[in-house]
Protein backbone atom coordinates (compact mmCIF):
# COMPACT_ATOMS: atom_id res chain seq x y z
CA UNK A 1 0.00 0.00 0.00
CA UNK A 2 1.28 3.47 -0.79
CA UNK A 3 0.37 6.79 0.65
CA UNK A 4 -1.95 8.73 -1.61
CA UNK A 5 -2.20 12.00 0.29
CA UNK A 6 0.14 14.37 2.00
CA UNK A 7 0.27 13.92 5.77
CA UNK A 8 -2.07 16.11 7.79
CA UNK A 9 -0.66 18.11 10.63
CA UNK A 10 -2.26 17.42 13.96
CA UNK A 11 -5.51 15.62 14.53
CA UNK A 12 -8.41 17.26 12.82
CA UNK A 13 -10.68 14.25 13.26
CA UNK A 14 -12.64 14.23 16.51
CA UNK A 15 -13.00 11.02 18.44
CA UNK A 16 -16.44 12.10 19.53
CA UNK A 17 -17.87 12.36 16.04
CA UNK A 18 -18.64 9.55 13.67
CA UNK A 19 -17.18 9.16 10.21
CA UNK A 20 -20.27 9.65 8.14
CA UNK A 21 -18.30 9.41 4.92
CA UNK A 22 -20.44 12.04 3.23
CA UNK A 23 -23.55 9.87 3.54
CA UNK A 24 -26.80 11.62 2.73
CA UNK A 25 -28.95 9.58 5.13
CA UNK A 26 -27.99 9.19 8.74
CA UNK A 27 -29.60 7.54 11.75
CA UNK A 28 -28.85 8.45 15.32
CA UNK A 29 -27.51 5.88 17.78
CA UNK A 30 -28.98 2.78 16.12
CA UNK A 31 -27.46 0.45 18.70
CA UNK A 32 -28.83 2.39 21.66
CA UNK A 33 -32.33 2.47 20.25
CA UNK A 34 -32.24 -1.16 19.15
CA UNK A 35 -31.06 -2.22 22.59
CA UNK A 36 -33.94 -0.37 24.20
CA UNK A 37 -36.34 -2.15 21.86
CA UNK A 38 -34.75 -5.49 22.71
CA UNK A 39 -34.94 -4.60 26.39
CA UNK A 40 -38.65 -3.86 26.07
CA UNK A 41 -39.18 -7.33 24.63
CA UNK A 42 -36.89 -9.23 26.96
CA UNK A 43 -36.59 -8.33 30.63
CA UNK A 44 -33.45 -10.48 30.95
CA UNK A 45 -31.44 -7.92 28.98
CA UNK A 46 -29.16 -5.69 31.05
CA UNK A 47 -26.49 -3.17 30.06
CA UNK A 48 -22.97 -2.72 31.34
CA UNK A 49 -20.14 -0.45 30.33
CA UNK A 50 -16.53 0.14 31.26
CA UNK A 51 -17.01 3.89 31.68
CA UNK A 52 -17.83 4.57 28.04
CA UNK A 53 -21.62 4.84 28.20
CA UNK A 54 -22.16 8.00 26.22
CA UNK A 55 -19.53 7.11 23.65
CA UNK A 56 -21.02 3.71 22.97
CA UNK A 57 -24.67 4.84 22.78
CA UNK A 58 -25.63 2.58 25.69
CA UNK A 59 -26.44 5.66 27.79
CA UNK A 60 -29.82 5.61 26.05
CA UNK A 61 -30.54 2.18 27.47
CA UNK A 62 -29.30 3.36 30.86
CA UNK A 63 -31.72 6.29 30.79
CA UNK A 64 -34.61 4.05 29.79
CA UNK A 65 -33.77 1.21 32.19
CA UNK A 66 -31.72 2.68 35.04
CA UNK A 67 -32.33 -0.37 37.20
CA UNK A 68 -30.99 -2.64 34.48
CA UNK A 69 -27.76 -0.80 33.82
CA UNK A 70 -24.48 -1.27 35.68
CA UNK A 71 -21.37 0.84 35.57
CA UNK A 72 -18.27 -1.31 35.92
CA UNK A 73 -15.71 1.47 35.72
CA UNK A 74 -12.56 1.43 33.62
CA UNK A 75 -12.05 -2.27 34.10
CA UNK A 76 -12.58 -4.27 30.94
CA UNK A 77 -11.53 -7.60 32.39
CA UNK A 78 -14.11 -7.22 35.12
CA UNK A 79 -16.67 -5.97 32.60
CA UNK A 80 -16.60 -9.37 30.92
CA UNK A 81 -16.31 -11.23 34.22
CA UNK A 82 -19.36 -9.54 35.72
CA UNK A 83 -21.25 -10.13 32.50
CA UNK A 84 -20.33 -13.80 32.55
CA UNK A 85 -21.63 -14.08 36.11
CA UNK A 86 -24.89 -12.36 35.16
CA UNK A 87 -25.22 -14.57 32.08
CA UNK A 88 -24.67 -17.71 34.10
CA UNK A 89 -27.53 -16.62 36.32
CA UNK A 90 -29.91 -16.30 33.37
CA UNK A 91 -29.52 -12.68 32.35
CA UNK A 92 -28.53 -11.34 28.94
CA UNK A 93 -25.80 -8.75 29.48
CA UNK A 94 -24.79 -6.30 26.74
CA UNK A 95 -21.37 -4.85 27.52
CA UNK A 96 -19.79 -1.89 25.82
CA UNK A 97 -16.29 -0.52 25.50
CA UNK A 98 -13.99 0.10 22.57
CA UNK A 99 -12.69 -2.66 20.33
CA UNK A 100 -9.12 -2.11 21.47
CA UNK A 101 -9.95 -2.39 25.16
CA UNK A 102 -12.29 -5.35 24.80
CA UNK A 103 -10.06 -7.43 22.61
CA UNK A 104 -6.58 -6.45 23.74
CA UNK A 105 -7.15 -5.96 27.46
CA UNK A 106 -9.86 -8.51 28.10
CA UNK A 107 -8.99 -11.25 25.60
CA UNK A 108 -8.49 -13.95 28.22
CA UNK A 109 -11.79 -13.03 29.83
CA UNK A 110 -13.66 -13.18 26.55
CA UNK A 111 -12.05 -16.52 25.73
CA UNK A 112 -12.59 -18.14 29.14
CA UNK A 113 -15.44 -16.25 30.81
CA UNK A 114 -17.61 -15.78 27.74
CA UNK A 115 -16.68 -18.22 24.99
CA UNK A 116 -15.45 -21.37 26.69
CA UNK A 117 -18.64 -21.77 28.68
CA UNK A 118 -20.86 -20.33 25.92
CA UNK A 119 -22.02 -17.65 28.35
CA UNK A 120 -24.71 -15.45 26.89
CA UNK A 121 -22.50 -12.35 26.90
CA UNK A 122 -22.71 -9.67 24.20
CA UNK A 123 -19.62 -7.55 23.64
CA UNK A 124 -20.42 -4.39 21.70
CA UNK A 125 -17.20 -2.66 20.78
CA UNK A 126 -16.75 0.84 19.42
CA UNK A 127 -14.16 2.48 17.18
CA UNK A 128 -13.62 -0.46 14.83
CA UNK A 129 -10.75 -0.11 12.38
CA UNK A 130 -10.42 3.40 11.05
CA UNK A 131 -13.40 5.11 12.65
CA UNK A 132 -11.28 7.26 14.90
CA UNK A 133 -8.31 9.45 14.19
CA UNK A 134 -6.76 8.79 17.58
CA UNK A 135 -4.02 6.51 16.39
CA UNK A 136 -2.82 3.08 17.40
CA UNK A 137 -4.08 3.08 20.98
CA UNK A 138 -7.69 3.57 19.93
CA UNK A 139 -8.04 2.11 16.46
CA UNK A 140 -9.31 -1.46 16.65
CA UNK A 141 -7.52 -2.74 13.60
CA UNK A 142 -6.94 -6.40 14.52
CA UNK A 143 -9.99 -7.19 16.66
CA UNK A 144 -11.71 -9.33 14.05
CA UNK A 145 -8.65 -11.56 13.74
CA UNK A 146 -8.47 -11.96 17.51
CA UNK A 147 -12.18 -12.63 17.95
CA UNK A 148 -12.46 -14.90 14.94
CA UNK A 149 -9.85 -17.18 16.46
CA UNK A 150 -11.96 -17.89 19.57
CA UNK A 151 -14.26 -20.93 19.42
CA UNK A 152 -18.00 -20.50 20.12
CA UNK A 153 -17.95 -16.75 19.51
CA UNK A 154 -20.15 -15.06 16.90
CA UNK A 155 -18.33 -12.13 15.26
CA UNK A 156 -20.30 -9.40 13.49
CA UNK A 157 -19.18 -6.27 11.64
CA UNK A 158 -22.29 -4.36 10.55
CA UNK A 159 -22.37 -2.11 7.53
CA UNK A 160 -24.64 0.73 8.56
CA UNK A 161 -27.34 1.95 10.90
CA UNK A 162 -29.90 -0.48 9.53
CA UNK A 163 -27.67 -3.45 10.10
CA UNK A 164 -26.41 -2.16 13.45
CA UNK A 165 -29.97 -2.18 14.71
CA UNK A 166 -30.81 -5.54 13.20
CA UNK A 167 -27.59 -7.12 14.44
CA UNK A 168 -28.34 -5.87 17.95
CA UNK A 169 -31.70 -7.59 17.86
CA UNK A 170 -30.12 -10.73 16.43
CA UNK A 171 -27.43 -10.75 19.11
CA UNK A 172 -30.11 -10.40 21.78
CA UNK A 173 -32.01 -13.35 20.34
CA UNK A 174 -28.92 -15.53 19.91
CA UNK A 175 -28.18 -17.81 22.84
CA UNK A 176 -24.42 -17.51 23.17
CA UNK A 177 -21.52 -15.06 23.18
CA UNK A 178 -21.39 -12.40 20.48
CA UNK A 179 -18.74 -9.86 19.53
CA UNK A 180 -20.43 -7.00 17.70
CA UNK A 181 -18.54 -4.09 16.22
CA UNK A 182 -20.27 -0.85 17.06
CA UNK A 183 -21.12 2.02 14.72
CA UNK A 184 -22.16 4.78 17.04
CA UNK A 185 -23.53 8.31 16.98
CA UNK A 186 -24.73 9.52 13.59
CA UNK A 187 -24.45 6.42 11.44
CA UNK A 188 -24.93 6.27 7.66
CA UNK A 189 -27.92 4.39 6.28
CA UNK A 190 -26.88 2.18 3.36
CA UNK A 191 -29.55 -0.51 3.52
CA UNK A 192 -33.28 0.17 3.48
CA UNK A 193 -34.67 -0.96 6.85
CA UNK A 194 -37.87 -2.03 5.12
CA UNK A 195 -36.17 -4.58 2.91
CA UNK A 196 -32.79 -5.45 4.43
CA UNK A 197 -32.69 -8.56 6.57
CA UNK A 198 -29.64 -9.34 8.68
CA UNK A 199 -29.24 -12.89 9.92
CA UNK A 200 -26.26 -14.23 11.86
CA UNK A 201 -24.03 -16.25 9.55
CA UNK A 202 -25.70 -15.18 6.31
CA UNK A 203 -23.94 -13.28 3.53
CA UNK A 204 -25.93 -10.88 1.44
CA UNK A 205 -25.43 -10.49 -2.30
CA UNK A 206 -26.30 -6.83 -2.49
CA UNK A 207 -25.36 -6.42 -6.14
CA UNK A 208 -24.70 -8.97 -8.86
CA UNK A 209 -22.24 -8.81 -11.70
CA UNK A 210 -20.14 -11.19 -13.74
CA UNK A 211 -16.85 -9.41 -14.38
CA UNK A 212 -15.45 -9.37 -10.85
CA UNK A 213 -16.59 -9.67 -7.26
CA UNK A 214 -16.10 -7.54 -4.19
CA UNK A 215 -16.52 -9.31 -0.90
CA UNK A 216 -16.73 -6.83 1.94
CA UNK A 217 -17.72 -6.48 5.55
CA UNK A 218 -18.65 -3.64 7.86
CA UNK A 219 -18.69 -0.11 6.61
CA UNK A 220 -16.52 -1.11 3.64
CA UNK A 221 -19.62 -2.43 1.91
CA UNK A 222 -20.89 1.11 1.49
CA UNK A 223 -17.63 2.00 -0.26
CA UNK A 224 -17.73 -1.23 -2.27
CA UNK A 225 -21.15 -0.29 -3.60
CA UNK A 226 -19.85 3.16 -4.52
CA UNK A 227 -16.92 1.54 -6.35
CA UNK A 228 -19.29 -0.84 -8.15
CA UNK A 229 -21.37 2.09 -9.34
CA UNK A 230 -18.26 3.82 -10.69
CA UNK A 231 -17.11 0.64 -12.41
CA UNK A 232 -20.54 0.06 -13.95
CA UNK A 233 -20.23 3.43 -15.63
CA UNK A 234 -17.03 2.10 -17.19
CA UNK A 235 -18.86 -1.02 -18.36
CA UNK A 236 -17.46 -3.32 -15.65
CA UNK A 237 -20.14 -5.30 -13.84
CA UNK A 238 -19.14 -6.15 -10.30
CA UNK A 239 -20.92 -8.33 -7.80
CA UNK A 240 -20.85 -7.13 -4.19
CA UNK A 241 -21.20 -9.81 -1.53
CA UNK A 242 -21.64 -8.31 1.92
CA UNK A 243 -20.50 -10.55 4.77
CA UNK A 244 -21.51 -8.94 8.04
CA UNK A 245 -20.82 -12.10 10.03
CA UNK A 246 -17.16 -13.08 10.11
CA UNK A 247 -17.99 -16.08 12.24
CA UNK A 248 -19.82 -18.30 11.51
CA UNK A 249 -18.54 -17.78 8.00
CA UNK A 250 -20.90 -18.22 5.05
CA UNK A 251 -18.70 -20.55 2.99
CA UNK A 252 -21.48 -21.46 0.61
CA UNK A 253 -22.19 -17.89 -0.46
CA UNK A 254 -18.50 -17.09 -0.91
CA UNK A 255 -17.63 -20.25 -2.83
CA UNK A 256 -20.68 -20.21 -5.09
CA UNK A 257 -19.91 -16.62 -6.05
CA UNK A 258 -16.18 -17.19 -6.61
CA UNK A 259 -16.77 -20.41 -8.58
CA UNK A 260 -18.77 -18.23 -10.96
CA UNK A 261 -16.63 -15.06 -10.74
CA UNK A 262 -13.07 -16.06 -9.82
CA UNK A 263 -11.74 -12.50 -9.57
CA UNK A 264 -12.28 -10.90 -6.20
CA UNK A 265 -11.38 -7.85 -4.16
CA UNK A 266 -11.85 -8.35 -0.44
CA UNK A 267 -12.44 -5.12 1.48
CA UNK A 268 -12.43 -4.80 5.25
CA UNK A 269 -12.02 -2.08 7.86
CA UNK A 270 -9.27 -4.12 9.50
CA UNK A 271 -5.73 -5.28 8.93
CA UNK A 272 -5.48 -7.41 5.83
CA UNK A 273 -4.25 -10.43 7.79
CA UNK A 274 -6.52 -12.54 9.93
CA UNK A 275 -9.84 -10.94 9.01
CA UNK A 276 -12.20 -11.27 6.09
CA UNK A 277 -9.54 -11.56 3.38
CA UNK A 278 -7.88 -14.38 5.27
CA UNK A 279 -11.19 -16.12 5.75
CA UNK A 280 -11.96 -15.85 2.05
CA UNK A 281 -8.46 -17.02 1.10
CA UNK A 282 -8.82 -19.99 3.46
CA UNK A 283 -12.16 -20.93 1.93
CA UNK A 284 -10.83 -20.61 -1.61
CA UNK A 285 -7.72 -22.65 -0.86
CA UNK A 286 -9.65 -25.35 0.98
CA UNK A 287 -12.05 -25.65 -1.94
CA UNK A 288 -9.21 -25.75 -4.46
CA UNK A 289 -10.57 -22.83 -6.47
CA UNK A 290 -8.27 -20.80 -8.68
CA UNK A 291 -9.14 -17.22 -7.77
CA UNK A 292 -7.34 -13.92 -8.28
CA UNK A 293 -7.60 -11.99 -5.03
CA UNK A 294 -6.73 -8.45 -4.01
CA UNK A 295 -6.99 -7.12 -0.49
CA UNK A 296 -8.26 -3.73 0.60
CA UNK A 297 -7.60 -3.00 4.24
CA UNK A 298 -5.03 -1.76 6.70
CA UNK A 299 -1.55 -3.07 5.93
CA UNK A 300 0.61 -4.69 8.60
CA UNK A 301 1.10 -1.52 10.62
CA UNK A 302 -0.38 0.63 13.37
CA UNK A 303 -2.09 3.58 11.75
CA UNK A 304 -1.28 7.23 12.06
CA UNK A 305 -3.34 9.82 13.87
CA UNK A 306 -5.24 12.17 11.63
CA UNK A 307 -8.59 13.06 10.18
CA UNK A 308 -10.61 10.13 8.94
CA UNK A 309 -10.81 11.29 5.31
CA UNK A 310 -7.04 11.60 5.33
CA UNK A 311 -6.53 8.20 6.95
CA UNK A 312 -8.95 6.43 4.64
CA UNK A 313 -7.01 7.74 1.65
CA UNK A 314 -3.67 7.19 3.37
CA UNK A 315 -4.38 3.49 3.73
CA UNK A 316 -6.16 3.17 0.37
CA UNK A 317 -9.49 2.18 1.88
CA UNK A 318 -11.73 4.54 -0.04
CA UNK A 319 -14.05 3.68 -2.95
CA UNK A 320 -11.57 4.75 -5.66
CA UNK A 321 -8.96 2.41 -4.14
CA UNK A 322 -11.47 -0.45 -4.26
CA UNK A 323 -12.24 0.34 -7.89
CA UNK A 324 -8.52 0.39 -8.66
CA UNK A 325 -8.14 -3.00 -7.02
CA UNK A 326 -10.92 -4.37 -9.22
CA UNK A 327 -8.97 -3.20 -12.24
CA UNK A 328 -5.95 -5.08 -10.92
CA UNK A 329 -7.81 -8.37 -10.58
CA UNK A 330 -9.16 -7.92 -14.09
CA UNK A 331 -5.65 -7.35 -15.46
CA UNK A 332 -4.51 -10.67 -16.94
CA UNK A 333 -0.87 -9.90 -16.17
CA UNK A 334 0.52 -11.41 -12.97
CA UNK A 335 0.05 -9.20 -9.94
CA UNK A 336 3.40 -8.04 -8.59
CA UNK A 337 4.33 -9.04 -5.05
Amino acid sequence: MTATATPARGVSGNILTSDTGGATRLASAPFGHALIAAGERDSRIVGLTADLGKYTDIHLFAERFPQRFFQVGMAEQNLIGIAAGLARTGWVPFTTTYCVFATRRAYDFIAIGAALGRANVKIVAGLPGLTTGYGGTHQGIEDLALMRAIPNLVVIDPCDATEMAQATAAAAAHDGPVYLRLLRGQVPVVFDPATHRFAIGAANLVRDGGDAAIISTGLMTGRALDAATTLAAEGINVAVLHLPTLKPFDHEAVLSLLARVPRVVVAENHVIHGGLASAVADAVADAGLAVRLQRIGIPDCFCESGSLPYLVRRYAMDAPSIAAAVHRVLDPRPTPG
Binding site: Q77, G81, A84, G85, R88, I112, G113, L116
Partner: peptide, 24 residues
Protein backbone atom coordinates in the same frame (compact mmCIF):
# COMPACT_ATOMS: atom_id res chain seq x y z
CA UNK B 1 -19.19 -27.06 38.91
CA UNK B 2 -20.30 -23.54 38.10
CA UNK B 3 -17.37 -22.27 36.05
CA UNK B 4 -14.31 -23.58 34.26
CA UNK B 5 -11.22 -21.88 35.60
CA UNK B 6 -7.50 -22.27 35.34
CA UNK B 7 -6.51 -18.87 34.05
CA UNK B 8 -6.13 -17.13 37.39
CA UNK B 9 -7.96 -13.94 38.24
CA UNK B 10 -11.28 -14.94 36.67
CA UNK B 11 -13.39 -16.36 39.45
CA UNK B 12 -14.02 -13.34 41.62
CA UNK B 13 -15.39 -11.17 38.80
CA UNK B 14 -17.78 -13.87 37.65
CA UNK B 15 -18.80 -14.50 41.24
CA UNK B 16 -19.45 -10.77 41.65
CA UNK B 17 -21.66 -10.88 38.56
CA UNK B 18 -23.60 -13.78 40.04
CA UNK B 19 -23.94 -11.93 43.34
CA UNK B 20 -25.15 -8.84 41.49
CA UNK B 21 -27.76 -10.96 39.73
CA UNK B 22 -28.94 -12.33 43.08
CA UNK B 23 -29.04 -8.88 44.64
CA UNK B 24 -30.90 -7.26 41.77
Amino acid sequence: VELSTGSLGHGLGVAAGMALAAQQ
